[in-house]
């Protein structure tokens, strides 16, 4: 998960926990850290290798779409599922996400709504045959 906002990160973790998804969550607090994580996994077979990326768009240092672009350009992760988790509801962001083959979840201002992220993620992983 690439997310700079801790309250949101905690909510995402809670949504995953509540759906009992068998996922180990690695946190990257900005775009650069996310890219470094990916680069490490590319170079080192023993490094943790992400199966799915939960990506905020408004990240410090390197923005979310740039992270996504570089991910899609990599060898090992070019086709892993990506779910964008963002505050933005701009049609432009949605259509750009679609172009990269990424899912889109808009962060809602309500606890219950936010927890639906778990369901969305679960469906996505089932679709991709990961679960």
């Amino acid at each position: 998960m690439a997310e700079d906002n801790l309250p949101d990160a905690l909510l995402v973790r809670e949504a995953i926990r509540l759906e009992n998804l068998p996922l180990e969550v690695h946190m990257a607090a900005d775009g650069q850290a996310a890219l470094a994580f990916i680069a490490r996994a590319e170079a080192d077979q023993d490094a943790p290798c992400p199966q799915v990326l939960l990506l905020d768009l408004n990240l410090p240092k390197v923005d979310g779409f740039e992270v996504l672009r570089q991910l899609r350009a990599s060898h090992r992760f070019q086709s892993i599922p990506v779910l964008i988790v963002s505050s933005s509801d701009s049609p432009g962001d949605r259509s750009q996400a679609e172009e990269f083959g990424a899912g889109y979840f808009r962060k809602p201002p309500s606890y219950e709504e936010f927890l639906k992220l778990g369901v969305v993620l679960k469906e996505m992983l089932q679709d991709k045959g990961i679960l």
Binding site: N5, P7, D8, L11, N58, S87, S88, K107, P108, P109, S110, Y111, F114
Partner: peptide, 20 residues
């Protein structure tokens, strides 16, 4: 307004969590 969303959401969601 875009940047305001995040802190406001945090207030809204976490006040709900505290209340629960």
């Amino acid at each position: 307004s875009h940047d305001l969303q995040e802190p406001i959401r945090n207030v809204a969601v976490y006040s709900e969590i505290v209340s629960r």
